[in-house]
């Protein structure tokens, strides 16, 4: 199976140093379980993604692009030439605009289906199909069977990345690839104003709109809501207590009601 992993020049969330985004390292791990993946990076400098060689890639194709140019036409042309069965990318970039739009634009340019937020990929039962597990949050999954080729983005709940291997990073090669199509013109600077980030007060759940500071404090410490109107049973009969607990759990919907089993 031919697999391409899209690599981006990320920034570390704390130090700001150039680093391979964790999501892409996780994508490499998913791809390494299926075949021999090839990295693909479009950008001014390939050194930014050299870490990916130590995470399990043996080869990275690098398309030189000027800073700020639109990578989608170049990546689409390179992927058409490679014709992979699976293209993996992180769900968001890291350290840039973090809009997560590139995989979608790429899938539209290639005319491929896109499956978002994947945590596991396996070959399907029929030939030429792939079975992808999409994360729905809270551990729930959606299992999608697709006839390839397909573009998939990786969710943070995917298995942790492989350990960095220094020898592998030394042996791996970065191949410069000439851009097949001219780089698109640099995206017109949108009317976006940038300022240093300012943290905003978090919305306190359960606090009434327009309420006082005391009410927000109560809501934040859990003294409002369910706890404020809490029921207290002192020394009930254990069976009575059990009935109360089950009724409460069913009332808030975490326990299924006792329904008769469906007839076979």
């Amino acid at each position: 199976m031919r697999i391409a992993v899209l690599l981006s020049a990320g920034r570390h969330p704390v130090s700001g140093a150039a680093v391979l985004p964790r999501l892409e390292a996780q994508a490499i791990r998913i791809a390494a379980g299926l075949g021999t993946p090839v990295g693909l990076h479009a950008g001014p400098d390939a050194a930014a993604v050299a870490d990916a060689l130590g995470q399990g890639l043996s080869r990275i194709a690098h398309v030189a692009l000027p800073e700020g140019a639109d990578p989608v036409p170049v990546l689409a042309a390179s992927l058409r030439a490679m014709a992979p069965d699976l293209v993996l990318a992180g769900r968001r970039g890291q350290g840039g605009d973090e809009s997560g739009i590139v995989p979608y634009a790429l899938a539209a340019a290639l005319g491929l289906p896109l499956i978002a937020d994947v945590v596991a990929v396996a070959p399907g039962e029929a030939a030429g199909t792939l079975r992808l597990d999409q994360s729905l949050g809270r551990g729930a999954l959606r299992r999608v069977v697709v006839r390839g080729p397909v573009v998939a983005t990786v969710h943070p709940d995917a298995p942790a990345p492989l350990a960095y291997a220094f020898g592998q990073a030394r042996r791996g090669v970065i191949e410069p690839v000439a851009a097949i199509v001219p780089a698109g013109p640099a995206a017109a600077p949108a009317a976006v104003e940038e300022r240093p980030y300012r943290r905003r007060p978090k919305l306190v759940k359960g606090a009434p709109t327009g309420g006082s500071a005391a009410e927000r404090l109560k809501a934040a410490t859990g003294e409002a809501g369910a706890a404020a109107s809490g029921r207290l049973l002192v020394d009930p009969d254990p069976d009575e207590a059990a009935r109360e607990i089950l009724a409460y759990l069913r009332g808030i919907g975490v326990l299924a009601p006792p329904s008769p089993r469906p007839n076979p």
């Binding site: 369910a226 809490g230 029921r231 207290l232 049973l233 020394d235 207590a241 059990a242 109360e244 409460y248």
Partner: peptide, 26 residues
């Protein structure tokens, strides 16, 4: 007990079998 929406002052060792009995009966 103060934090809970439903607080039961009773020995948990006694309530657990009662819960299991009730679930089994249901």
């Amino acid at each position: 007990i103060e934090r809970a929406g439903l607080a039961i002052v009773q020995d948990a060792q006694a309530v657990m079998p009662a819960l299991l009995r009730l679930l089994a009966r249901e």
